[in-house]
């Protein structure tokens, strides 16, 4: 059974303020991902890998097609649902690991990481245990936990972001170059965390520029071509 079923999704950016220029980025993208499977989006830059991933998270809109996602209460089409419902799907079903951390400046690393699981109403002891585990595995020293991540290095911020994104065991996990600015040791930790997610049955869709990581994690590649 596929947790993700992308059917003929197309997307064109229209730049109204630059003379209405039309930039087609995706044409009829279609693929499925089943539980425990990792599909890597493949293709040269400009073929819409990142756009497609963002559409799976409701961050970008699709012009046409369907993005069917299996949620606890049934199958939903992300192209057509109300944004309010998308918020619930983000809370419970789809997780996204991006390269950038976006948080309020003054919030501590600890609270940034704990938030997604707290939002689900989880017991604080469970939240704390999980956060501790992830932060330790990602080699973020305990002395940093009470500090706001705004002043951290790029690699530290990204690890905070990964910890935050993996707090909830989402059935669907989207990864946008999660290891971009990490050293070898931390890359290994992230690779293991992704493998564990797959083993518990998560459907994973990712973009990896790191060839080693890609061949290690990918069950299949989905090749994208230029839409122009």
């Amino acid at each position: 059974m596929s947790l993700i079923d992308v059917r003929s999704v197309s997307k064109t950016f229209i730049l109204h303020n630059q003379g209405g220029v039309q930039l087609p980025v995706l044409r009829n993208a279609s693929f499925q991902v089943t539980a425990g499977e990792c599909v890597v989006l493949d293709g040269p830059s400009g073929t819409g890998k990142s756009t497609l991933l963002k559409m799976l998270y409701g961050n970008y809109r699709a012009d046409s097609g369907q993005i069917l996602v299996q949620t606890a209460s049934g199958i939903e089409d992300l192209v057509a649902i109300h944004p309010h419902r998308m918020l619930q799907i983000r809370r419970d079903t789809v997780g996204f690991v991006s390269q950038f951390l976006r948080v309020i400046p003054r919030v501590s690393t600890w609270d940034v990481v704990c938030e997604p699981l707290r939002r689900q109403g989880a017991d604080e002891s469970i939240v704390a245990e999980r956060a501790r585990q992830l932060l330790q595995r990602l080699n973020l020293p305990q002395s940093l936990w009470p500090l706001a991540p705004a002043t951290f290095s790029g690699g530290e911020q990204q690890r905070v972001n990964i910890a935050r994104s993996l707090m909830v065991e989402y059935p669907i996990l989207l990864l946008d170059e999660p290891t971009a600015s990490l050293d070898a040791a931390n890359r290994e930790v992230v690779a293991r965390l992704i493998e564990e997610a797959r083993q518990r049955g998560a459907a994973v869709v990712g973009i990896f520029h790191d060839d080693g990581l890609r061949s290690r994690l990918a069950d299949r590649l989905y090749a994208l071509e230029s839409a122009q």
């Binding site: 409701g58 961050n59 970008y60 809109r61 944004p83 998308m86």
Partner: peptide, 11 residues
């Protein structure tokens, strides 16, 4: 226009 905050701002 309406939508998720990040969707409206990013797309």
């Amino acid at each position: 226009e309406t939508g998720l905050t990040d969707q409206v701002l990013d797309d």
